[in-house]
Every structure is written in structure tokens, then in C-alpha cells.
Nucleic acid binder design. Sequence first.
DNA 1: TCTTGACCTTCCAGTAACAGGAAGGCGTAG
DNA 2: CTACGCCTTCCTGTTACTGGAAGGTCAAGA
Lengths: 131, 131
Amino acid sequence: MNIGQVSEISGLPAKTIRYYEDIELVTPARAENGYRHYAEKDVHRLKFLQRSRSLGFTIEECRLLLSLYEDKQRASADVKAIALEKIKEIDRKISELKSLKKTLSALAKNCHGDNKPECPIINDFAGRVVE
Amino acid sequence: MNIGQVSEISGLPAKTIRYYEDIELVTPARAENGYRHYAEKDVHRLKFLQRSRSLGFTIEECRLLLSLYEDKQRASADVKAIALEKIKEIDRKISELKSLKKTLSALAKNCHGDNKPECPIINDFAGRVVE
DNA sequence: TCTTGACCTTCCAGTAACAGGAAGGCGTAG
DNA sequence: CTACGCCTTCCTGTTACTGGAAGGTCAAGA
């Protein structure tokens, strides 16, 4: 299969697929004319990458997951540990975003939002204490 | 003031302060020896940047906010609109993260996490239907 | 006076994960 | 023969810095 079809099937842009080759994640064979030729196994790897990336794993994490994917002896505990760590990371990000939201919401609530210049949001950014 | 003291006061690394000069956010005067010399106004701008960046605004948003900060005629509505938009953005990110977490948690829950190779997480990534 | 150490300067490279675009080869249908 | 779509490589740009090298400046101490 050529890159166009693989792109369709995997849901990854051709640009991304070429990039994955660059960083040695999926290295297809080459046809005589220089075109990339993807075997079934390559397509599986690309689909795997599409799914794992979409779930928030970094490229390096995906590289590790791919090696576990292809290691028929791996312990499921190893995979689960990575997933749980990622869940923790997601939780941290959510907390941080919630905290930001809380602060911004409080500021926005105090701001009249009219055509006058007085603005508690700007005041806060400027380090002025709200009186 | 030299960059070191300004760094202390603003809570921004010297590297970052130099970078902000590079992108023309805060352009201090220069002493005869070539050292950057920061006036009060510059320090205010840097503090403003520290605070607005820490609340999740991008550099370009901060640039806009700074111009509003220094425009004594601005309408508070303009500032509030930016804050509300940012809150929406944060909400979108939170939703996305929650969705990721949900998917990952479901996969992790189904995974025994033992020393056997069978792993529902890997199976999902590989596109295998769970039976 | 010399040296040491802290502080300052500029410049270059790297980060994450691609996306956009230019210039040009290949393949097939009309 | 040409047009068009698909393919190739290569270079640049994105975001917001961070790390590090090479070297100038300044004040204090021996």
C-alpha cells in the first residue's frame, strides 16, 4: 500500500506518517520507484499509534507501548502501570485547569463588563490589591 | 535595576525576560556598559506578564492585555470578553481531559495487571474488539 | 595590583509533534 | 502528449521558552 491509502486507513495525515518514519517508529519498505510500501504490520503499528496518541500518550510513551504491543511475553501489569500513570497526569492537568478557571471566573464575575475603564481583572494582573 | 533584581521581583527567569525583550514585549534601556536597565514601568509590565501568563493566557493574548492595561480609556467589557473566552477554552480542555480519563480508566479497570500477557489496553490500542 | 566570583552580554541549539509549501519525479487516462 | 493526482525530499515555522558556550564587567579581598 502507498502512503495515501495508509493515511486513509489509519486516520493519520501522510505528513505525520512520514514524520513517524523519520523518528523511526514505522519504517516501511520502498518500491522501485522510491514510493513507500506499507505491509500489514506497518499499518497495524500506525493504527496503534493513532489510537494511543489520541489517548494522550506522548511519542516516547507510544514507542514503549509499541514495544510492549509486539512483545508477546509482556506482563499486562507493565501496560497497566503506564496507563495509571497517564491517568494521574491527566488528573493533575484537570486540577490545574480547574484552579485557573476558578481564579478567572472570580475575576470575571467582579468585572462589570461595561464601557468604563475600571476593571478588576486588569487590576489583578497589575498586582493592585482589590479594595 | 539590572535583570537579576527584576527577575527576583517579577518571579520570571532572566532568560524569559530577555526573551520578552526579543519579542518586543518589554524593552528596557541600556546602561553604558551594555547592561539592561529596567525602569519601574518595565517592572510593572513584567509582573503583569507573569500574572497573566500564569493564568493561562498566551503571549499574544498577553500582548493584547498589556495594551488594554496601558490604555486608560479601555472598556472593561473588552477585558472581560477575553477572560470569558479563555474560561471557555479552559472548559473545552477540561472536557477533553475528562473524556480521555474516562476511556483510559475503563481500559485500566478491565486489565488484570498481572504477569500474564493478555491485556485489554493493548488490545484496544491494536483495534481488537473486546469479546 | 591581581584574582576570584557573581553578574552580565550575545549567539546557537534544542524542545514536541507535527504542518505548510516549494520543487520536482511517477503513473495513468484521455 | 498532456493533464492531473500522487509521490518524493528538503526547508521553514510553530510555542514559549531553556541550556550552554564564550566572553565582558564589577566589586571585594589578598
